[in-house]
């Protein structure tokens, strides 16, 4: 590629901005090994005590399991609901398909603070507040638009003749979908899975409206913890979460190319 040479001024500026962008993620690593009992940077002594402390904290552990189960259930449901819907919208093209697509992705346009309040008010009437089912339903509202969007794009870019070829070879519509369409959508499905999982696992605003003393998710528990006492335990937990995110990102990158998923 014949790119323009990058001027030193731009290099320095970009480098400085990168440091700014990554500073909060970098800084939690040393803090997580702090020996102090409250947060201070740089720490006055070092230890690894905060990592085991996470697992000793019953609230955090149960919130973690809730988040993990929640993200899992939400991801599975997003695929189960999103895949048929994307297929219907892209392939069967009912009248008003475009309108329906916009409607189904519209929740993304609403700020989560507004959506959270709206859902809080309605769900309180159904007794869904501070329940696992309520959390699942609320998260689905925001993960499904992502699922629809990624899966629709994946479907729309599939070559239709390949499916037709399968039909001429004797595959029934269901078999075509199972043996040809689905495998060819693999990268779209992996992308959707990762995206829904991370969105649900990291979701905090909606969850704040939906949780209570009885049930909490990890980001909510962390939020309350930071609000009260920003101690190094949160840093240790953050490091674990960043590692978890990295693992997910690497898996996606292996199968579908992360850059492609985010930058068209």
């Amino acid at each position: 590629m014949d790119e323009r040479p990058i001027s030193p001024a731009l290099k320095i500026l970009a480098c400085a901005m990168f440091i700014f962008l990554l500073a909060p993620l970098i800084v939690v690593v040393p803090i997580s090994f702090s020996g102090d009992s409250y947060m201070m940077f740089p720490p006055s002594s070092w230890s690894t005590k905060w990592y085991p402390a996470i697992f000793a904290d019953g609230k955090m552990v149960s919130a973690f399991w809730t988040s993990l189960l929640l993200a899992f259930v939400v991801t599975v449901l997003s695929l189960l609901i999103g895949l048929p819907a994307a297929y219907a919208l892209v392939r069967l093209k009912p009248r008003g398909a475009e309108f329906l697509s916009s409607l189904f992705t519209a929740p993304l346009l609403l700020p989560t603070i507004v959506l959270g309040l709206a859902i809080l008010i309605v769900f309180s009437g159904y007794g869904l507040l501070a329940t696992f089912q309520g959390l699942v339903a609320a998260h689905l509202v925001v993960t499904l638009p992502y699922a629809i969007r990624v899966l629709s794009t994946a479907l729309a870019t599939l070559p239709i003749p390949v499916e037709e070829a399968a039909a001429t070879l004797g595959a029934s519509p269901l078999t075509v979908f199972r043996r040809v369409t689905l495998p060819m959508m693999r990268s779209g499905i992996v992308g959707t899975t990762a995206l829904c999982f991370l969105v649900s696992f990291d979701e905090v605003v909606l969850s704040l409206f939906m949780t209570g003393p009885r049930i909490s998710t990890l980001p909510v528990a962390m939020y309350h913890r930071v609000e009260q006492q920003a101690d190094p335990l949160v840093a240790a937990l953050s490091v674990l979460l960043v590692v978890l995110t990295l693992v997910v990102v690497l898996v996606v990158d292996r199968t579908s190319g992360l850059a492609k998923t985010f930058v068209k």
């Binding site: 962008l21 990554l22 500073a23 909060p24 993620l25 970098i26 800084v27 939690v28 803090i31 947060m39 940077f41 991370l198 990291d202 905090v204 980001p219 962390m222 939020y223 930071v226 920003a230 949160v234 840093a235 953050s238 979460l241 960043v242 995110t245 990295l246 997910v248 990102v249």
Partner: peptide, 17 residues
């Protein structure tokens, strides 16, 4: 990557700074 990291984590980082 920061986009995929919880806002709580990143805000916590800013508290530390």
């Amino acid at each position: 990557s920061p986009l995929l990291t919880s806002a709580v984590v990143r805000t916590y980082g800013w508290v530390a700074i």
